[in-house]
Design a protein around this nucleic acid. Structure first.
Lengths: 207, 207
DNA sequence: GTCTATACAAGGATAGAC
DNA sequence: GTCTATCCTTGTATAGAC
């Protein structure tokens, strides 16, 4: 494991535990028995550590999406995709919650363009839901598609905020299960008979 | 306006603009042409300013809930309530997003008990939805109630995160309108004919 | 009771040694 | 490539003026 990876792993561990603003660079360095300045060498600023973690998260998830898109559309498959994503988000929960810290970066524009990422997410979900409509799993009007897409961008991103902020002793599996139930329920409101069976198949496997 | 109020107002303004962690106590003091130490006099720590703002937000909203509960239950009335709450949340958006900063306080337990607040919210929404069921505006199974309650606690709190984090030029009215549309749509999935008319009456007034 | 001036500790960042 | 010494900013606390 390279120094960079060591730093990232330790930083993620501490950030998940205490929150980004409460983790000092000196603390990370002390834990790894290296000097604080060494952190500055590998990552210029503390924020850059957060950015690198976000990047690592995004890479992992991109491949998950691609795997899903390579198979025939089904609600069961979609729920499996979201399960993997939820677990990944849980792993990086401190990073998401700490990202308010980089809010100021948005205007400077040199880092991630969140606006753009957000719109790619909208487009991605729209595609997925339209395919599920065509495949006969969901029955959606144009408005329904827009609604579900907005629902996914909101709930799919911020469930982890709720879980982390309000749950004192979060346990990954039960937390993820709760939000997958929410998602299944939401989808079933628009599901065809085929779709409901597909959801049922997913739920059955989950037990 | 008392000094305390001056400080709170200026702090809210700056926090909404730049985020809690990016606003220094010296900056607030400079803007008000007072000394930094004066802030320590009125509020012990920087966090206490955030807490006071949260408290002010909560007080404003408690009365909104009470007003709603004093009238006969209707979806139109409920949407009006949520509109007021959304506007209030927009006003305090920086405070919400900054509250990750106080995450560590949760364990110490002397401040707000978020777990308790969360559960009161659950109970409050459950009561509201059950009343709307009895009043013939919604048609809900036990599971539906649970689902809608969880939906409200998530969407009703974190829409403001999404709006602030992803929207570059947020305008209060159009933002609130978007999320009220989302909420109306969600409720209409469970609404009776009476309920749908009530939602329609709200939407018509909104234009 | 309010406020200023000031001191101090802790954290992030950086120049330069090895 | 790794690290130390150092600087600067920020939050916090307090002595003492009015």
């Amino acid at each position: 494991m390279t120094r960079k990876e060591q730093i990232l792993n330790k930083a993620l561990e501490l950030i998940n535990e205490k929150g980004f603003v409460h983790v000092g660079v000196r603390e990370i360095a002390r834990e790894l028995k290296i000097s604080p300045g060494n952190l500055s060498y590998h990552f210029g600023k503390k924020e850059d550590v957060l950015m690198a973690l976000l990047e690592r998260y995004r890479e992992a998830n991109t491949s998950l999406y691609e795997t899903y898109l390579a198979t025939p559309p089904s609600l069961k498959g979609f729920l499996h995709l979201m399960k993997s994503i939820f677990e990944s988000q849980y792993l990086y929960r401190g990073v998401f919650i700490g990202n308010q810290y980089v809010q100021a970066q948005l205007e400077s524009g040199d880092h991630f363009n969140y606006q753009e990422i957000y719109e790619r997410r909208l487009a991605g979900f729209a595609r997925i839901f339209k395919e599920l409509h065509t495949a006969g799993h969901l029955k959606l009007s144009e408005e329904d598609v827009r609604f579900l897409v907005f629902h996914m961008t909101l709930a799919g991103r911020f469930w982890i905020y709720e879980a982390t902020l309000f749950d004192k002793s979060p346990d990954r599996d039960s937390t993820v299960k709760h939000y997958l139930w929410m998602l299944s329920k939401q989808l079933s409101l628009f599901a065809t008979e085929t779709g409901r069976q597909s959801i049922g198949a997913f739920t059955a496997e989950l037990e």
